[in-house]
Each structure stands twice: as C-alpha cells, then as structure tokens.
C-alpha cells in the first residue's frame, strides 16, 4: 500500500487554518454589526479550529492508503468514517491530474478517477508529486483501456 506524500499534511493544515480564519472573520463581523462577541472567544474559536484541523490532517495522512491491485484501484481513507473503495479498471471513464494554488505552491498534484457511478463517481487521490501523479494517470489509463468492457452505460 502506498501512502501519500508527507507534505499533504501541510496542505490540509493550511486548508483548516484558512477555514478557521474565515470563521474568525465572520465572528468579527458579527461582533461589529450584530452582537458583541468577546475577542477571547474569537481567538479561542480560531485556535481550536486550527488545532482540531491539524490533528485531523495528521490522522488523515496516517490512514490514507492506496494501491493498484490486479483488477481495481483500491483506496482506504477517512478519520470519522473509514472507507475502503475499490474502483475496477473496467469502470474507469477517464483520469485527470489536477492541482490547486496551494497544491502547486507545495509541489503536489492530485489524480482524479471518474466512473459512471452515482455516488463517489469521482475518486480523488491527493498529495502526489507531479511525476508520480502523471505516472499513476498513465498506468490507470492503460489499465482502463486494456480492460475495456463494452457494456455501455
């Protein structure tokens, strides 16, 4: 089983921090225009948000695993709800590599696998180095083409 790149923790922590700060700004706005919110509470909320978010990010990194098995792409992830997903190669519609601004700054990239399913129709593997992402994309594409089934949806 392959783990994600350790730097993904930074990305997730950054995301949690941004969310916490946005929440803090909203609270400050409430304080300004609606009701008084003590500054200590705002600071506390932001701090707790960042701490919880970081703990979540670290735990998520620890449990995130993926693997290319003979017939399917297999992933394990989730802190609160642990999910084991198998995406058979025959079901892969197309494969993307993507990266957002923070990911780009951290030198990371994601692979997104699309299926025709209704739920979990797109499966994302975050936290890959761009090279690894490209390699994975190529592998998955080849495997998908190889095992093509003609039962069109």
């Amino acid at each position: 089983m392959e783990a994600l790149h350790p730097r993904i923790r930074l990305l997730w922590i950054a995301q949690a921090a941004i969310t916490a700060i946005v929440l803090g700004v909203v609270l400050a706005a409430v304080d300004q225009w609606v009701v008084d919110v003590p500054t200590a509470i705002i600071a506390g909320v932001v701090a707790v948000g960042i701490v919880l978010g970081s703990a979540y990010a670290i735990r998520l990194y620890q449990v995130w695993r993926f693997e290319i098995q003979p017939d399917a792409l297999y992933l394990e992830r989730g802190v609160v709800t642990f999910v084991e997903t198998a995406v058979p190669f025959v079901r892969v519609q197309h494969v993307d590599t993507q990266f957002g601004p923070i990911e780009r700054a951290l030198g990371l990239s994601s692979v997104v696998v699309y299926t025709a399913g209704s739920r979990n129709a797109d499966v994302r593997i975050p936290g890959l180095t761009p090279d690894r992402a490209r390699e994975l994309q190529d592998t998955l594409r080849e495997l998908a083409v190889e095992s093509e089934a003609d039962d069109a949806v």
Binding site: G78, V80, T81, F82, V83, E84, T85, A86, V87, P88, R91, T115, A116, G117, N120, A121, V123
Partner: peptide
C-alpha cells in the same frame, strides 16, 4: 457494479 465501498463510522 461500478464501485464497491466498505464504510465504517
């Protein structure tokens, strides 16, 4: 079947 997921809360 498209995908199979085992979920545990």
């Amino acid at each position: 079947i498209q995908t199979v997921n085992t979920r545990r809360s």
